[in-house]
Amino acid sequence: MKKRALLISLLASAGTVAGLFASGAANAQLNLKQFGIGGGDSAAEASGAASPGGLSQLLQTYVGANQQVLSGQSTLASAMGMSSAAGQAQQAAGLLAGGGTPSVSQLTQVGSTQQSLSQTLTQASASRAGGAAQTPVNRQAFSEGLSSLAKGVSQYSSMQSGLGSIGQMNPSSLLQAGMNPQTMQSASYIAQSAPGQLQSLMSTLSSAVQFASSHGISVPSIAKSALGGAQ
């Protein structure tokens, strides 16, 4: 009788322990869900920005957008006879061409160059608006540069809805889920920098479109839609 009672007691204890483990696992899953990891019903994961896969996708989109922008800036600069500026854009694009996750240092350098080129191109467009005698503009190349720049601006715009979730990331939870620390750092940089970069690029694209329109240069439809869609 005593053996039977002891066996029942042991089984009951085992059930209690199993229940505690199950409860702990459920809580852990819930904690991860609120940061967009696991499950599929959290607001963070719905946006796709706060999950490991979402952050990686965001980074890829950002790199692709900058490659398009720098290509456009290089082509526009070449079309206006500014070979030095075109070379700077190509050099910056090279920092993103190696594959893998770019570091914050690389992204900062690319962003700085991109901002500088935006100012240079905007000033060049304004200085030539009066029709002063300068190096002739390659019309076809300028139109191609507008197209590439507009594609980059459109990609920048597509990222904006996902940037807010990055500020709500829980680094420790993401690390436990296998997130690369460099990816997290780069994503944080993007969240802080992308909105300002988009505004600068919008201004550059707008100036370039105005310049093209006033000089009889074909303005690609994507340039017009990018200006409308990003506002």
Rank of each mutant, 00 (worst) to 15 (best):
S154N: 12
V137M: 01
A126N: 11
G131C: 02
R139Y: 11
K151R: 15
A132F: 14
A150L: 08
A141C: 04
V153I: 06
L121D: 07
F142I: 00
A129P: 09
L146C: 07
A126W: 10
S157K: 05
S125Y: 07
A129Y: 04
G131V: 01
V137Y: 00
V137R: 02
A124P: 03
L121N: 12
S143D: 06
Q140T: 13
A133Q: 08
T135F: 09
P136E: 01
N138R: 11
R139K: 11
G152E: 03
S143R: 10
S127L: 11
A126I: 12
S154M: 12
A141Y: 12
E144D: 15
T122A: 10
S143E: 13
Q123N: 14
A126R: 13
S148T: 02
S157F: 02
Q155Y: 03
L146G: 05
F142G: 08
S125Q: 11
K151G: 06
Q155R: 05
Y156Q: 13
G131A: 10
Q123W: 12
V153N: 08
Q155S: 09
P136V: 00
P136A: 01
A150R: 13
Q140S: 13
Q140K: 03
V137E: 00
G130A: 04
L146K: 11
S127E: 13
T135D: 07
